[in-house]
Write a protein that binds this DNA or RNA. Structure first.
Length: 498
RNA sequence: GGUCGGAUGGCCGAGUGGCUAGGCUCAGCUCUGCAAAAGCUGCUACAGCGGUUCGAAUCCGCUUUCGACCUCCA
């Protein structure tokens, strides 16, 4: 496969040329949501980021199997302070069946993903649906001597692992530091070492979600689900594993250790981690109690929100920043993104309606060259670790050219037919296919269109008679009703519905 | 405390040795009956202090400061 895609690999801390294991095919695994609560703005980032990764890989011609799990058994803390299934806890609070609650938040999550125009995963496995696979993997690890059972719980022996493998390489930490943790946590006494993590936890009697295992009734440790499911659907070694930076340790580090022992080799060729969304400089997260839920974002119903924001505005906002940088929430910034997204979409719309006179030679060679360069650079930017921020910047460079052709500031024959055609297809490819943008307004129905055209015709007549009182009244009243009229240069009148 | 990463113009945010990032805001202009939209023009920043270099936002050192992870977390 011929392409120049370079990916920043968190494992090696450098950009590497991407080569898939099987030519033409790519396996992508992304850590999905824990469906014990509603998704918030921070969750939007990885799913939009990796949606663009998926889209770009497909654009390059890869057949991609995209696996994104649903953690529906809660994240059981291996040495949890609560030492209890969080899903169960919340369920009691809401007086719901655990599976009922899990279903509710799964549905909400899917709804949000759809609004963001994220492509659905090829496979969306659930943790509870893969208990057998997880148990089997734990058994293998025990057989190989890297896990031990205590009181119905199974722990991974990190010290033993670290003796022969580079434990801590992904997250850049030293085992000795981990062992010095002074924190006193539940289950600590069961472990041989503080750095050990649970593969399986014995379930206390009140625990609702429980499964039979060789070690008694219990539930799986958090990290094992991703290892079991990714290897099942993508193979023991697969191409890309993505997730938030906050998962690097201990989650991903543990995944590497488990899989390395169970399968005899490291599981992932390219580790990708998106940075966090912050709010007032602090990470947005449930532990900080500073989250803005997706539903609040879309409705504007939150004290920190000056207004509601369209899902496409959020998407655009996120893609305007490189995925490895932090992104600070702010109304001003969001509003800027809204205007920007509108303007870019407008330019896209204009471009769709433009036609080219057909001249094979550009009358403005410099502009023709510049446009070609801008378009070509978009590919370079995507290849450079998915630099969507730069792609968007270049699309903005093109907007004045497009609008200029329409407005007459740029001559229709300034570009050659070939360049114009390239502009048209490329703009579409990058904005729609790769960045996954959609219009911010829904398409209007035929009936509303008919009604508005009646008013527009009346206004045209009034303008012809120089009856500006009437024409302004129509425009102002429609504006008050949320319909903006525009008098185009050619005498036609167009409208946009807010 | 340990490890790691930031600090860029009014705001957001790219960018790793020399070339205007881009967006939003603001001001002016063109177009327009007036608007809106669009186009054009202007606003030229890189936390501080040293150092390397012909040349540094970009490399090195120190300082200040913010944050992430070390515990569930996207």
């Amino acid at each position: 496969m011929k392409h120049e895609l370079k990916i920043y690999n968190s494992y090696t801390r450098q950009k590497e040329q991407f080569e898939s294991i099987v030519p033409g095919y790519a396996g992508l695994y992304v850590c999905g949501p824990t469906v014990s609560g509603e998704s918030h703005m921070g969750h939007a980032r990885p799913y939009i980021t990796f949606d663009v990764v998926l889209r770009y890989l497909r654009h390059l011609g890869y057949k991609v199997r995209y696996v994104r799990n649903i953690t529906d058994a809660g994240h059981f803390e291996e040495e949890g302070r609560v030492a209890q299934d969080k899903v169960f806890e919340k369920a009691k609070l809401e007086k719901l069946e655990p599976m009922e609650m899990v279903q509710k938040y799964t549905n909400l999550f899917h709804h949000g993903m759809k609004l963001f125009n994220n492509i659905e995963p090829s496979i969306e496995p659930t943790a509870t649906g893969h208990i057998i696979e997880q148990i089997s993997m734990i058994e293998t690890i025990i057989e190989k001597g890297y896990a031990y059972e205590v009181n119905g719980s199974v722990y991974f022996d990190v010290s033993k692992y670290a003796a022969s493998y580079p434990y801590g390489k992904l997250s850049g930490r030293v085992l000795e530091d981990q062992l010095e943790t002074t924190r006193e946590l539940d289950g600590q006494d069961e472990k041989r070492n503080k750095a050990d993590f649970a593969l399986w936890k014995n379930a206390p009697p009140e625990h609702l979600m429980r499964w039979k295992s060789p070690w008694g009734e219990g539930f799986p440790g958090w990290h094992i689900e991703c290892s079991a499911m990714s290897s099942k659907y993508l193979g023991e070694v697969f191409d890309i594993h993505g997730g938030g930076m906050d998962l690097q340790f201990p989650h991903h580090e543990s995944e590497i250790a488990q899989s390395t022992i169970a399968h005899g080799h490291a599981p992932v060729n390219y580790w990708m981690h998106n940075n966090m969304i912050t709010i007032n400089g602090k990470k947005m997260g449930k532990s900080y109690n500073n989250v803005i839920k997706l539903s609040e974002l879309f409705s504007g119903n939150h004290e920190l929100l000056a207004q509601a924001y369209h899902p496409m505005v959020i998407r655009f906002y996120i893609l305007q920043t490189h995925y490895r940088s932090t992104l600070d929430f702010g109304n001003e910034a969001l509003q800027a993104s809204e205007r920007a997204a509108r303007r870019l979409w407008e330019a896209y719309d204009v471009l769709q309606k433009l036609t080219h006179p057909g001249n094979a030679v550009a009358t403005d060679a410099a502009l023709d060259q510049q446009v070609s360069t801008w378009l070509k650079e978009c590919t370079d930017f995507m290849n450079d670790d998915f630099n969507t921020a730069k792609v968007i910047a270049n699309l903005f460079e093109l907007a004045p050219v497009i609008n200029g052709i329409k407005g007459g500031q740029v001559k229709a024959d300034a570009l050659s037919a070939d360049t114009f055609a390239l502009l048209k297809t490329s703009f579409d490819t990058f904005l729609i296919d790769i960045l996954g943008m959609q219009p911010l307004q829904a398409e209007q129905g035929d009936k509303l269109d008919g009604v508005l055209n009646v008013l527009i015709d009346i206004r045209k007549e009034a303008k012809k008679r120089k009856d500006f009182a009437l024409s302004d009244e129509i425009r102002n009243k429609l504006a008050a009703a949320g319909v903006l009229l525009k008098d185009e240069k050619d005498g036609t009148i167009s409208y946009t519905v807010e």
